[in-house]
Computed example of a mutant assay.
Amino acid sequence: MAESTPDLRALPKPRAYDELLAHTRAVLEGIDDPIAAMATISALVHHAFGHLWTGFYRVAAPELLRVGPYQGTLGCLEIPFGKGVCGAAAREKRTVLVPDVHAFPGHITCDARSRSEIVVPVTGPDGALLAVLDIDSDRPNAFDDDDRAGLEALVAWFAEKRG
């Protein structure tokens, strides 16, 4: 299959996420490698919506996230659970949507252009936290419940049993 990264910015978000989910599932058909999936999902989401930074922080040790596959400028290399938006999402195992990162207590600035952020926990088939999907925008209030629902549907791939 000739891979492509569709630009979905002109579509209403619910339709864009439906198309992105279908495309992602098709690209990942037969794949069971979570790192390959993280790299693929990062690229597809990043280019579909033109975000500032899109990527995964993997659970590297108890209470520690380490940068994984991503698209964008350099990311923070490690983030302790409970620190910043990623650490909050990891600790609480829930999606954290931040309309203004400057108003989020303890926000970690990896790229000074970041204005809003959404972080989605990624769990495996056993329910254990594997990673978080972190997306930053250079626009304030860039993310909403459509993004939350769409991104949660995308990362559900990791919770499915394979093989």
Rank of each mutant, 00 (worst) to 15 (best):
residue 131 A to M: 02
residue 153 A to Q: 10
residue 4 S to G: 08
residue 30 G to C: 08
residue 135 I to Y: 09
residue 146 D to T: 12
residue 17 Y to H: 10
residue 128 A to F: 03
residue 79 I to Y: 00
residue 97 L to W: 11
residue 145 D to M: 13
residue 47 H to N: 10
residue 74 L to H: 15
residue 16 A to W: 09
residue 127 G to I: 04
residue 87 G to F: 02
residue 120 V to I: 13
residue 115 R to Y: 02
residue 58 R to K: 08
residue 104 F to M: 02
residue 28 L to C: 08
residue 127 G to S: 05
residue 36 A to L: 14
residue 67 V to C: 09
residue 2 A to F: 12
residue 65 L to N: 05
residue 156 A to M: 03
residue 2 A to Q: 15
residue 157 W to D: 06
residue 62 P to D: 13
residue 21 L to S: 11
residue 6 P to S: 06
residue 14 P to H: 08
residue 135 I to T: 07
residue 9 R to A: 13
residue 2 A to V: 14
residue 79 I to W: 00
residue 5 T to E: 12
residue 49 F to S: 02
residue 112 A to K: 08
residue 78 E to A: 12
residue 149 A to F: 11
residue 132 V to W: 00
residue 56 F to I: 08
residue 45 V to I: 12
residue 136 D to L: 13
residue 19 E to Q: 14
residue 28 L to Y: 03
residue 137 S to R: 12
residue 154 L to Q: 06
residue 158 F to E: 03
residue 121 P to F: 03
residue 7 D to M: 01
residue 138 D to G: 14
residue 23 H to W: 10
residue 4 S to W: 04
residue 86 C to P: 01
residue 121 P to I: 05
residue 41 I to G: 02
residue 14 P to T: 09
residue 75 G to A: 13
residue 31 I to N: 14
residue 77 L to G: 10
residue 76 C to E: 07
residue 64 L to C: 03
residue 130 L to D: 06
residue 118 I to S: 14
residue 14 P to C: 11
residue 36 A to F: 06
residue 158 F to G: 04
residue 21 L to Q: 11
residue 150 G to V: 09
residue 44 L to F: 11
residue 124 G to A: 15
residue 122 V to G: 05
residue 111 D to C: 04
residue 22 A to D: 12
residue 45 V to M: 02
residue 144 D to V: 14
residue 90 A to R: 07
residue 149 A to E: 12
residue 4 S to N: 14
residue 4 S to M: 09
residue 68 G to T: 12
residue 118 I to N: 13
residue 67 V to L: 14
residue 125 P to T: 06
residue 133 L to H: 07
residue 110 C to D: 11
